[in-house]
Design a protein around this nucleic acid. Structure first.
Lengths: 302, 302
DNA sequence: CCACGGATGAAACTTACTTTCACGAAGGCG
DNA sequence: CGCCTTCGTGAAAGTAAGTTTCATCCGTGG
């Protein structure tokens, strides 16, 4: 009890297994048998009960407890938990992921899932990384001060535009989304100083989106572009440019990752605006949530 | 993704916390208190004894045990071990501990960006982790063989539904999305054996979505539900259930991460279907891309 | 208003963990 | 060479943790 008791304290955090095998030689024979089992398969040991482990090590429970104390644990349960944690940590990190993005022809669903998840998550992270907080700030400011916000996007970007519109609307801002270019153009013509027009286009080359921003800008409105390509045509008619960072390839040309990246930016702007009017936004969200309550099925399944 | 073999096992092994938060609404009040403690700080929960945890959750040990069973564990010790492992594997987010939670009042844009990116990316990854490839496979199969696919979703889920519809349509599948419930219901009434109806609802309690699936199922169509909560009402009318893993406080945050998670699942299904008809899908994508070419502004996009 | 079913905690119970203690083997000292 | 000491050990007693059972409570629908 006295001799090895103090060794541990500092080593507790990292490398429990290493720690154990380090002081293995200093343990008594029976304890060593326990130690070897533990080191050989920590995860398995964590699953066992003390009696079970004692039996496997051909010794008694008492010895297992002594072993626990010898390696600096309070008791068996603590050892178990530490072992479980340790074992989990040394599991291979989510390894060879198909970074490229293209789905190989023979891929099964599991591969497809992994690939998509990876590139989708990547797009979100990378987009966030390269987003300029200062620009976001200004855009939020503009939106917050606008008496009207027009949002335009076509096809896949249309969903994003529509989503953004709905979000702003939900917190009580006057926002519009027009699926039809002509309507969007006429609306843009009615914008004025202090209003905001947002154009969303992954490629940045969507003629309609460019035209809408152009029109809005001509009327004195603040124009914001959301695109993946920082030097694309749409950026030329935008006061503020927000870029996404999605790398789409063949199959993904159906705008998959880009969409998520765009939505992330929308989320940022939305939260930014909401944060400016915390109380009001919260209230609005609650009210709108209540409004749909009758459309919910009551109760839960058990 | 290393192992695809064990279908149900993979669901349990990966993302225990996610799994729990998904089941949260379907738990009884007392169990929910326990669940919240566990989700809030898994590592801490793993350290506690059952009595301790019960006290902290202001309930009895019996309830804690019931909670363990509800989330698929044998008993408390197993839960403890799993929590410890889970907590260890989890990489500490750089700064923001706010995972699904609220943005702190004083947050600046940079913080907001980091927080959102983190929880968005997390939702995507965790959703992918717990997606069951076998179920996806069957859904893909069903969609692939369907002569018609009806997709329904309301509000935020409506965008996802619409996006899915557009994607399927683009690779030449006959898919519909109806923003109007009544139209959706009449359409569902015309579905038949071999057809597919997809209902999207984050909470799983959207009455409209449930009704549409019900109707579709009554007509012999295959029904698919996409929801965050594996035991919500919508799952009762679905032949196949696909779950997302967004840990969003259900109503408050206006469906941000959940949306991305849903889109990820949509992407998986889309690619899955496309992969079955590689040549045809590719051709279709090219043709549709050409169709919008005249609407592009010419010029570089670096 | 009652019957019913689910949710819940108190208490009985079981299992797991911890402590105590006595035995026996190894080493030292008279 | 024996006797004492020390240490490692497991049996068994003791305590704490986990699990089951059951009576009660509460809301729901007849």
């Amino acid at each position: 009890m006295v001799k090895t008791a103090k060794v541990s304290a500092s080593h507790e955090t990292a490398g429990l297994i290493v720690h154990i095998s380090g002081l293995l030689p200093s343990l008594s024979p029976a304890e060593q048998r326990v130690a070897r089992l533990v080191v050989a398969d920590p995860a398995d040991a964590a699953r066992r009960t003390i009696t079970d482990l004692a039996t496997a090590a051909e010794t008694s429970e008492a010895t297992v407890i002594r072993f626990c104390r010898s390696v600096g644990m309070d008791g068996y349960p603590q050892l178990r938990i530490r072992l479980a944690a340790e074992a989990a940590r040394r599991v291979e990190p989510p390894d060879a992921r198909v970074v490229g993005g293209d789905i190989p022809p023979g891929a099964d669903l599991a591969q497809i899932i992994a690939t998509i998840a990876f590139s989708d998550a990547r797009a979100v992270e990378e987009t966030a990384e390269q987003l300029d907080p200062a620009v976001c700030e200004q855009v939020v400011e503009a939106i917050n001060g606008a008496s009207r916000i027009d949002i335009y996007g076509a096809a896949a970007s249309g969903f994003v535009a529509s989503d953004f519109q709905q979000k702003l609307h939900r917190i009580g801002r006057t926002a519009f989304y027009f699926p039809d270019v002509h309507v969007a153009l006429t609306s843009a013509a009615l914008l004025g100083k202090g209003d905001v027009a947002v154009g969303i286009s992954h490629t940045g080359t969507t003629l309609d989106a460019v035209e809408v921003l152009e029109q809005a800008r001509a009327r004195g409105a603040t124009t914001v572009a959301l695109t993946n390509f920082p030097r694309s045509p749409i950026t030329e008619v935008a006061d503020f440019v927000l870029t996404t960072a999605a790398r789409e390839t063949t199959y993904r040309s159906g705008a998959m990752a880009s969409r998520l990246a765009q939505l992330t930016v929308v989320d940022v702007l939305f939260v930014g605006v909401a944060a400016r009017n915390r109380a009001r936004a919260k209230k609005a969200l609650e009210v709108t949530a209540e409004a749909v309550q009758p459309h919910r099925v009551k109760g839960r399944r058990s």
